[in-house]
Design a binder for these strands. Structure first.
Lengths: 195, 195
DNA sequence: GTCTATATAGAGATAGAC
DNA sequence: GTCTATCTCTATATAGAC
């Protein structure tokens, strides 16, 4: 097989399985079975399980950045872009109700395992945080207020994801998304609101 | 040792380790070492690891119920009681910043493992949910609105716990707690607010 | 680059002495 | 009720043929 292709497949499958089953509960055998390679072949591409985890985190960082860049291009204003973020809860509803948020659950797991890769996982959160803060800044908020609003919204979407996977309640998710959109509409800072 | 005492110690230690290290990542050897018994003795008290998990969940259900009952007795009004709930984020700040919320992280882990005990873990969430809903009902809200508010507050505190363990940001937790308290003050339903 | 075979360590779980 | 010794299975990881 072409160089890098098998490796990419391993990372892609590992990304999904780490999400659906958790990092620790996913074995090389699980990944190898889905990629349809032998367990031995694995070690030509990755020396340890931690190396796969790092590759998965890099992949998620890239994919997240690409998604944020896409929203930046497609949506005209910062309000629409933030709405795209909120709508993830609807777009990915089925998977979130089954497995929670991929970023939040991985971060939690790595925090308990005490792995150094935890910093990388938190980095995915940081991408969202700084991107959201920039959108709130574009709405007219100062740097500090914008970061505060970004963290607030990030926390709310995390909480909804956690309870969605606990209670499997679609109506709850939809109500919270509506609520967050209404909250967003109210976040124009005073100077702009008065114009 | 007196009957039941060793068993209780096992459950107590397992409760803490499942929180700090995760259920799957905690081994019998880990628990046995802290309780200072042999691995073999373990199986006199519990036949399988799942049985320990179920005992831990039962313990958490009891402890949670006792905490809620305590707030019911100590705090005069429903507003003060809900404030006690919000303040968990401050009282347990150190552990939450290190390991997240014990309920949320256990539920997430069990969802991924696909264990039947997941229902029990969700039951802990339900205790909070119904207790909070009752407090909001006492504030004058209808049953449906009260449950909606309970789920909203539960989600917010979950989100704060997740980001707290990701970013280790004490100021963020305190700001969100203040925000939730302010939100709570605004939740008197219209008929009461007009009195 | 991929395979089979194997080494090694750790897990959960059992048996039987005390 | 607690111990030691042991079984079995699965996991990560390695060696070496193709």
């Amino acid at each position: 097989m072409a160089a890098g292709e098998t490796r990419a497949q391993i990372v892609e499958v590992a990304d999904r399985l780490f999400y659906e089953r958790g990092y620790e509960h996913t074995s090389f055998a699980d990944i190898a079975a889905e990629v349809q390679i032998s367990r031995g072949n694995f070690y030509y591409h990755f020396r340890t399980k931690d190396e796969i985890l790092d590759a998965v985190i890099r992949r998620r960082l890239e994919n997240t950045q690409a998604m944020l860049d896409g929203w930046e291009d497609e949506r005209a204003g910062p309000g629409d872009r933030i709405t795209s973020f909120i709508q993830i809860l609807i777009v990915n509803q089925a998977k979130i109700m089954a497995f929670g948020c991929p970023v939040g659950t991985l971060t939690s797991e790595l925090a308990k395992l005490g792995l150094p890769s935890q910093a990388g996982a938190t980095g995915i959160f940081s991408l969202f945080r700084h991107w959201l803060a920039r959108q709130f800044a574009l709405l007219g908020h100062g740097a500090e207020a914008a970061d505060r609003l970004a963290m607030h919204l990030l926390a709310r979407s995390q909480g909804v994801a956690t309870l969605a996977s606990a209670f499997h309640d679609k109506a709850f998710v939809e109500a919270e998304v509506q609520d967050m959109c209404a909250w967003l509409d109210a976040q124009a800072p005073d100077p702009i609101r008065l114009q």
